[in-house]
């Protein structure tokens, strides 16, 4: 599953949006069975411009501006995968994936098991997700728990330009369906893209080393955690930051190792906390690192409410202060 091929000879600095765009272009050049499907992804290049230039290069038979119907997009992608294609779907915004929910969780996810392995589903569903963009209702949600809860799917979320690029290449090469959650607020954040991948699609990585408290998160939240770690450092607390990268499966070894080193863990996410990925992380650390813990594993999440109007998003979304408050509570034990 490691990415190969037309990588640049040396590291290039680019925003996440461009890193995704180049990954799509390289994947399409490498394999003519790779197709893009979605709403407004053709001449417009998608509402976030992630597919910019691809319609011009590959044409309408490879970059399909589809009818405006999410169930239809995912359901027909399943049929195309049965025919040997590798569709990469763009869902326009997180809150608009639900019309396709059955096709994802009952069809795409179960198709291989229903066929006793005779048919695989190499389909990627890209979803720009999460808040911090001040948008209207249904445009800022974090639906990862629904998909991480579903057997048969893989769910990943990059936080850097390098991961955006290489994880998308790896997701497209995977013969399993992958829900690929893109931190839309970070689309224009720049980073280095290396000539080769440095981690597997499902590896968790330590984004910053520390010794007192482990902070765990994914996607845009990793940036909040790094910011919190910086502030904590100034106040004399050393925080380690673990970037989950993959939400299903979760790579437990580096997480458990970090929890054992620090004995204190804070898990943060934009999604509501009830029955969330953060809950799974907290429960598993409690099961596997119980005797190393100095404090209960704490969760910092969005509230268990609908995502609020934009004026209140800063109240709803965990920021560095809420993370640091949890760090203080963990240290109080």
């Amino acid at each position: 599953m490691s990415g190969q091929g037309a990588a640049a000879a040396q590291a290039t600095t680019m925003p996440i949006a461009k890193a995704l765009n180049s990954a799509l272009r390289e994947a399409m050049r490498a394999d003519e069975k790779v197709l893009l499907m979605g709403e407004d992804i053709g001449p417009l290049g998608g509402v976030f411009r992630i597919t910019e230039g691809l319609h011009a290069e590959f044409g309408g038979d490879r970059v399909l501006d589809t009818p405006l119907a999410e169930s239809g997009i995912i359901g027909t992608a399943i049929g195309l995968a049965m025919r040997g294609y590798r569709p990469v779907i763009e869902i326009q915004f997180d809150g608009f994936v639900y019309p396709g929910f059955d096709q994802i969780v009952s069809q795409l996810a179960k198709m291989r098991a229903r066929h006793r392995g005779a048919v695989s589903m190499p389909v990627v569903i890209r979803i720009p997700y999460g808040g911090h963009i001040g948008a209207v209702e249904h445009h800022q949600e974090s639906p990862e728990a629904y998909f991480a809860h579903t057997a048969g799917l893989r769910v990943v979320s990059p936080s850097t330009a390098n991961d955006a690029h290489w994880m998308l290449r790896q997701a497209i090469e995977s013969d399993d369906p992958v829900v690929f959650l893109e931190p839309k607020a970070k689309y224009w954040t720049k980073g280095e893209v290396l000539p080769e991948p440095t981690a597997g699609l499902h590896d968790a990585v330590v984004a910053r080393q520390g010794s007192d408290v482990t902070l765990i998160g994914h996607g845009a939240m990793v940036h909040v955690l790094l910011q919190a770690a910086e502030i904590a450092e100034a106040e004399g607390t050393s925080c380690e930051v673990v970037d989950l990268r993959s939400l299903s499966p979760i790579d437990w070894a580096p997480i458990i190792a970090s929890a054992e080193r620090t004995g204190r863990v804070v898990v943060a996410q934009e999604a509501p906390g009830h029955v969330s990925v953060g809950s799974e992380v907290a429960a598993t650390i409690a099961e596997r690192a119980f005797y190393s813990l100095e404090a209960p594993v704490l969760r910092v999440s969005g509230f268990d409410t609908p995502f609020p109007p934009a004026q209140l998003e800063a109240v709803y979304l965990p920021d560095a202060d809420r993370v640091l408050d949890a760090v203080d509570r963990a240290l109080a034990h």
Binding site: G72, I74, G75, I78, A81, M82, R83, S106, Q107, H115
Partner: peptide, 27 residues
Amino acid sequence: PLEVRGMRIYSLVIATHALHSTGYAMG
């Protein structure tokens, strides 16, 4: 369906395969 000529498997969630079949035909 790979062993039985052109006969896909049954589909129990009503009408979902209307889309799989259409996608296959698009292919």
